[in-house]
Amino acid sequence: MTTSARRFDIALGADIGQRDCQEDAIAARFSSTKDIGYVVVADGMGGHQAGDIASRLVASSWSASMDQQIRIEAAPERILVDALPLAAMEANAAIASHIEAQADSKNMGSTLLGALFVENRFYWISIGDSPLYLYRGGVLSQINEDHSMAPKLDSLAAQGLLSAEDAHVHPDRNCLTSALMGGGISRVDCPEHPNEMREGDILIAASDGIQHLADAEIETILRTENHTGCQDILDQIMQALRDADVPDKDNVSVAIVALKQSAADSQTLTQFETNSTPS
């Protein structure tokens, strides 16, 4: 194992698309003293600004819960990992509270995609259809579950029960099969075990608006911008989204996280790395 003398390169961005309001929320926090941090993306729904509120509630309450754990000195990693779903419960409770207080917000809800980074490991919790991509070795793949009808439709298409085209434009394709709506949560994707983050890996946490771009398009951007840093990658992706010829373009929020190049690491970070511990 490498030591923890690593740093994360992070970039966040959001675009309202062609919608009236921004129903996405995105936030990140990375410790300045430890190699710990998180990003969270929430994609709200509900209309009449309820989606706006829902996503902000989810992102803020989830972040607040995680912050409490991250602040704890030398918190066992297991505690941090368990905090992911617990924070999701807090977020769901926040939604429930709001719904109870506001009768007109009954159908409000939000996806939640939270990724936790600890040294060279990462974990995630995902509820809904906000994608988490891992770019590794030149290949981009979505690594979290997609809690929408899309996988089912694609599966039907794969079985020949539906044409690929029909599956792709199916009206129910974007229907969620799980979300934070203040009540029961039907599906949760929250692997218990860590995933290794390697040098050169790029993680993208986003709202589903990013899927206006095909995976191959994102992959191309990553390949060309791979060595210029996350901000450049983000800029390219956001530009590509703006350029995309898509009707009724959705909100999009994108967080990009990578490990800094070790060369740059050793120069800029040594002065901060007093609390780090070997993994």
Binding site: S60, A64, A94, S97, H98, A101
Partner: peptide, 29 residues
């Protein structure tokens, strides 16, 4: 719950709604 504390909670929530996402833990707490 829905009748009592929820409303309180919401009041607080709305407060922090305006806050920066990253800095409103205290409110939430």
């Amino acid at each position: 719950e829905q009748q009592t504390e929820r409303s309180d909670f919401f009041v607080s929530q709305s407060d922090f709604d305006d806050d920066d996402l990253l800095d409103d833990e205290a409110a939430i707490a």
